[in-house]
Amino acid sequence: MTAVIETTSLSKHYPKGVRALDDVSIALEPNRIHALLGRNGAGKTTLMQLLTGQLVATSGDMRVLGDHPFENAQVLSQTCFIQESQKYPDGFRAQDVLAVARTLHPQWDEDLERQLIADFRLPTDRQIKKLSRGQLSAIGIVVGLASRAPVTFFDEPYLGLDAVARQLFYDHLLADFAEHPRTILLSTHLIDEVANLLEHVVVIDEGRVLIDADADELRGRAYDVSGRVDAVTAYVAGREVVAQQRMGGLANATVIGPIDAAARAELDAADLTTSPVSLQALVVHLTRTPELAAASR
């Protein structure tokens, strides 16, 4: 399958040595839900802004739908970028934004638009600056989903949305994605909430790619081991450990690597129990110890 989004050594540097994005090479396959994860300031938004022609790269190359996105109406009409920090002109109402967005996306679905407005209880005739943070986010979600753009970027799309509204977003995203497969790149901090929606995960940290893997594969990349301190200590010796805790005579460690037959035998013999590591915990551990992320590849 050829990639729908591809970057080669993509970098965005600012004066004073700030490397917002540094040598990023990724390839995202079409019609999948990809997650872009990382801490605040890791470069997630910068990457999306480059991919949608909002910013100019310092060096490197990128392809979106086979072409460079900058100043490329053909590419941009097939993409939709929902950014957390989107500003709206004074006096604009949601309906003003929607009226124009509708004309810019050939695949726009008005029925879905109405459904989303109703579900998110978005007051479309009220001035945007009088809306709550959650309602502001809802505008982006309506545009992002109703656009049905073949490549859709969601950058922290649900700031201020409560749990109910977030679930609504996931449900709509899944339902519409199933009916109309397209490429979604979603950046979020709420990793556990979206873990089951994802097929592919890219984690960036300080502008560099830390992890680029399928979600399924990532799930098997680490595990927790717990048991008696001496047993755990003996087991983790010579293995990659990202976190370790002890409580009295018991210890707990997060170990990188699959549990192969040899490891399983060793675990059973030492009377150690294992449990899965959540995607969120894994990302947290790996962003704390970047050199291990590289080692775990």
């Binding site: 949608t52 022609g53 909002q54 100043e71 490329n72 109406a73 941009l76 009409s77 993409t79 939709c80 970028f81 950014q83 989107q86 500003k87 709206y88 002109p89 004074d90 604009f92 934004v97 124009v100 967005a101 810019l104 996306h105 545009v143």
Partner: peptide, 20 residues
């Protein structure tokens, strides 16, 4: 002023090119 400071950011956000 309004054109650049208010309409321009939304235009780019909606995927309009600078030329357009």
């Amino acid at each position: 002023f309004t054109a650049m400071l208010q309409i321009f950011p939304l235009s780019l956000g909606l995927g309009i090119t600078r030329r357009e």
